[in-house]
């Protein structure tokens, strides 16, 4: 069942001025309830502009965006959309402002009207969901490591219990283990709560591991959308989008050029080893 329906969405910045730029052009895309969609594209491809239509920050210049049971053209619906669609910005720890981690996570749910015991429970739940230890909730955010700070910032959005969760490069700038752990937690959330997840990334290895479907954007246009494995095995599309194929996809391409054809394109080293072991 689709929970997001984007039809011919166009967005133009500064219309009617010399600075006019078409950020999105004629995008049509649906996102199903409970799936993880990865949105990939080079810097400036319009990924951020696109998702800002999904939580009410931007209104379409043309086209229609339907989310859950409403239309974002409706100003009243758009104003309230942040309660149901959580958007985690890139480097979200830069938005932390409270004296304790608890206070910061509580900011969003408090704005939805939650208070007291119910609020505290929400905060604890959200912290647990991202793997932030309970005792860290009382500390000053300035004392946390980069990875923990990122978790706290993500928990601040999770605590609003969004139906749709959008994350802009949640692993950017983190060491490999922290990055993996955060993405794993989000995957678990998607599976256990049925949350719809949109993952913005230019790291296609992440998309390969966590996304059901992959959409490629290029200069404000939708280049392709489909099952992750299918899109990732199309090196021509990835090249056109200005993205770097995952290691195993690039390896498959290089082997094919040398006359060695794998039965299918593996998406991670373990799968590649399985396919290669048969041939060796």
């Amino acid at each position: 069942m689709p929970c997001i329906k984007i039809e011919n969405l166009t967005h133009t910045y500064f219309p009617g001025t010399p600075l006019e730029t078409a950020a999105l052009q004629d995008i049509s895309l649906t996102v199903d309830q409970g799936e993880t969609l990865a949105l990939a594209g080079a810097t400036g491809s319009g990924k951020s502009t696109l998702v800002r239509h999904l939580n009410g920050l931007l209104a379409p210049t043309a086209g229609r965006v339907r989310i859950l049971d409403g239309d974002v053209a409706d100003k009243k619906f758009r104003r309230q959309l942040w309660r149901r669609v959580g958007l985690v910005f890139q480097f979200p720890e830069r938005q932390i402002f409270s004296a304790t981690v608890h206070e910061d996570i509580a900011f969003g749910p408090r704005n939805t009207g939650l208070a007291g015991q119910a609020l505290s429970e929400r905060v604890s739940q959200a912290a647990a969901a991202v793997g932030l230890p309970e005792d860290m909730l009382r500390t000053d955010p300035a004392e946390l490591s980069g990875g923990m700070l990122r978790r706290a910032a993500i928990a601040g959005v999770l605590a609003m219990h969004p139906d749709i969760l959008i994350l802009d490069e949640p692993g950017a700038g983190l060491e490999p283990r922290a990055r993996e752990s955060i993405l794993q937690r989000i995957k678990e959330l998607q599976v256990s709560q049925g949350t719809t997840v949109i993952l913005i990334t230019h790291q296609l290895d992440d998309a390969a591991l966590y996304a059901d479907r992959l959409a490629l954007l290029k200069k404000g246009r939708l280049l392709a959308v489909g099952p992750t494995a299918e899109i990732l095995s199309r090196c021509d599309l990835l090249d056109e989008a200005g993205l770097e194929p995952p290691f195993t996809v690039e390896l498959t391409r290089r082997l094919a050029a040398a006359g060695i054809n794998l039965p299918k394109t593996p998406l991670n080293p373990a799968e590649a080893a399985r396919l290669l072991a048969v041939m060796l």
């Binding site: 920050l57 942040w82 910005f89 979200p92 830069r94 939805t112």
Partner: peptide, 13 residues
């Protein structure tokens, strides 16, 4: 501008 949007996304008014 980014901060404004990020906090609006958490219901800041």
């Amino acid at each position: 501008r980014l901060l404004l949007m990020a906090q609006q996304s958490r219901g800041a008014d």
